[in-house]
Nucleic acid binder design. Structure first.
Lengths: 176, 176
DNA sequence: TAGGCCATGTAAAAAGTTACATGATTTT
DNA sequence: AAAATCATGTAACTTTTTACATGGCCTA
């Protein structure tokens, strides 16, 4: 058995393999799962998921079988032994990749070209958005119940990060 | 005069126009500036910058002239009136785009597939990295002196966000 | 005189989004 | 009976990265 080449695991591949460590899933199911969980720190669209699943199957990291629901064709993917090894190997790699893409922050950076009223509105809007997003995360948390697995901690991270951001913009507004 | 189409301003175009609001720059200079300032919330590579500058010039948002240093060809770009209008129009658009891409967080999310020792190492590494990055940002802050413009506030945001993240992982470690 | 910085660019590949197309099943 | 959800996919496009190629200028 030759070890699968891990350096070729694309970001999307990592999310897919990760979600398959919990249980076998269809492409549709993977999309739903990313939308509900990893979306804010690593999303995926159908345009990536379906082709990537086929690539992963060719590479032997996942395997699939048909499982139609009535007339509806349906293909369920599961992790192979090679897939699990490749994923676990990625899990223990040291990586520092971290990136924030925040348009509000970019606007603030160039804010000297803004009027005072515009700046005011930006600060207000950002606070609102962060509070709303924190509330959305909280609702998701209530749906899935008390924190048990590590996914729960990540959700709590999301809530706290959104609150921190809202507070930061509030502080900025008071300062200016 | 017809208004330039702002919906076609790519993310890279916005950073370029934004940096040109301060002063005229060469492509190389723009790259240096993004590396030193916007990198962590909006970066750009040469492969985007040079082609984008030509697109922007064709669209009339920037203008350039040659300014060689000895034998070295050198082209300096500046914002046109249309470019300034397009950029200011973007500045006041309402946008909520926000994204975090954090590999450490992704690993934590799938951390049930990790051993206790692996998880331990992840938490330690992340704290280290956030503390180091906060220190790096602080050094940059010392170089550019006291906070005067809004760019200084964005730098302070970066420092505080890195500290918050380090603290979060420290708290997590104590909990587990 | 060597190394680092300034300077410009391209080609190819990788990654990701958006819009479209289709239709069955399940729930209200 | 209608609406929502489950389900699969593609094509075109946009965006971004990576690797390569080139060479002058400045300073220790």
């Amino acid at each position: 058995m030759h070890l699968p080449d891990m350096s070729s695991l694309s970001p999307t591949a990592r999310v897919i393999l990760g979600l398959l460590t919990f249980r076998p899933r269809t492409g549709y199911d993977i999309k739903q799962a990313t939308d509900r969980s990893t979306r804010f720190f690593w999303g995926a669209s159908y345009g990536q998921i379906y082709p990537e699943l086929r690539r992963l199957e060719r590479a032997g990291l996942v395997a699939s079988h048909e499982e139609p629901r009535g007339q509806v064709p349906r293909r369920v993917y599961r992790l192979t032994e090679d897939g699990r090894l490749a994923f676990e190997s990625w899990l223990s790699e040291p990586t520092d990749q971290y990136e924030v893409r925040d348009e509000g922050l970019l606007r603030l950076f160039f804010g000297d070209a803004m009027s005072a009223a515009q700046l005011e509105e930006l600060m207000r809007r950002r606070q609102e958005w962060y509070r709303e997003t924190a509330a959305l995360f909280r609702r998701i948390g209530e749906e899935i119940g008390p924190i048990e697995d590590l996914g729960g901690h990540v959700l709590r991270y999301g809530i706290e990060l959104m609150e921190w951001n809202a507070d930061w913009w509030e502080r900025l507004e008071r300062e200016l």
